[in-house]
């Protein structure tokens, strides 16, 4: 056991305790959490800063307003319902299509509007929010994900998790939904995480359920050497989120929309650690390298160019 601790230290693997105490607590002051925990607020800020986000269709804040749901989506064939204060991908309902009065979920099961109302009521009641406080339901644009990931993604929306340390992209991974994760790009629920070479935007190693994988568990397709389009734009977009919410240890979730290009899906003040397994590398060496730089440049382009020095 001691030997393994030694090995993990050498690899610079950051554990939960170290993440919380050495990175999240000192760099993410509590008062900044509202920038990321409230997705409505995040969206507003992003729109003001001209950062691309999925369009907000409507917001439901009270049970009474649920009646306006039909009006909000009357001309939309597809949309996403999610809690404004949700965490870990909880409470996100994706509707791909409509057939008569029924709404079709990505796994091709249909639900009626009653079920959606119930889901919204749950969201408002705080079932999915942090600490169970009363919440709001966001209804927004459903991302039409880039077909590039079709062969390696099981339904849902694959996204790119960017770990931004002090405004500099430190590590990245592609998150691919699986059958186990029920179409959600959440690694805790069984999605696949694929490490990305920060310089080239090409995928490297992959992880599923904290174990090394080389193929997508549902399709058996190879996960490495997939090139992510618009990589420089992606880096730029994610680094600019630091301007939006100046959290030192920030997770940025980006989706690639087939028509709109990269969109910021949400920000995360406590990004997880599986990204290390996906990349086959510990975070600590990179974060230390960023810590060593005394004055970090202001300009986003300059920040991105720092990446090559920390790898």
């Amino acid at each position: 056991m001691l030997k393994r601790i030694q090995k993990l230290r050498e690899a610079g693997v950051v554990g939960i305790n170290a993440r919380n105490r050495s990175y999240v607590m000192p760099h993410n002051p509590r008062k900044l959490y509202k920038f990321v925990d409230d997705k409505v607020y995040t969206k507003q800020l992003a729109e003001e800063a001209n950062i691309a986000v999925p369009k907000l269709y409507g917001l439901i804040t009270t049970v009474h307003e649920i009646n306006s749901f039909n009006q909000i989506i009357h001309d939309k064939k597809d949309f996403v319902v999610k809690p404004a204060h949700g965490s870990g991908g909880k409470g996100i309902l994706v509707i791909d299509n409509r057939r008569g009065d029924l709404f079709i979920k990505p796994n091709n099961t249909a639900i009626n509007s009653e079920a959606i109302r119930y889901h919204i009521e749950n969201i408002l009641g705080g079932v999915y929010s942090l600490g169970g406080q009363v919440d709001q339901a966001i209804i927004e644009y459903r991302v039409k994900f880039d077909p590039i990931f079709n062969s390696i993604s099981y339904q849902g929306v694959p996204d790119i998790r960017m770990l931004i340390y002090k405004g500099i992209p430190a590590m990245a991974m592609l998150r691919l939904p699986t059958q186990q994760s029920d179409g959600k790009a959440n690694l805790h629920q069984g999605a696949v995480g694929v490490g990305i070479n920060l310089m080239t935007g090409t995928t490297t190693l992959a992880v599923c359920n904290d174990r090394r994988v080389y193929e997508h568990p549902d399709f058996g397709s190879a996960l490495s050497d997939v090139h992510i389009p618009d990589w420089q734009q992606l880096l730029f977009l994610s680094a600019s989120c630091y301007q939006l919410a100046p959290l030192g240890y920030l997770g940025v979730d980006i989706v690639l929309d087939a028509e709109l290009g990269p969109l910021i899906l949400e920000l995360n003040a406590r990004p997880g650690l599986a990204i290390q397994i996906a990349n086959g590398q510990g975070l600590k060496h990179r974060l230390d390298a960023i810590d060593k730089i005394k004055t970090l440049p202001e300009k986003i382009e300059d920040r991105i160019s720092i990446i090559q020095t920390i790898l």
């Binding site: 056991m1 050498e10 690899a11 305790n17 105490r21 904290d210 397994i277 590398q281």
Partner: peptide
């Protein structure tokens, strides 16, 4: 509250990273 070491569960979670580190070495 000041402990920043690994949790025992993480030794299992990051097993593959430790093994790869071994191979790299």
């Amino acid at each position: 509250g000041r402990y920043t070491g690994y949790r025992i569960s993480e030794l299992i979670r990051f097993k593959d990273l430790a093994n790869e580190e071994d191979k790299n070495a």
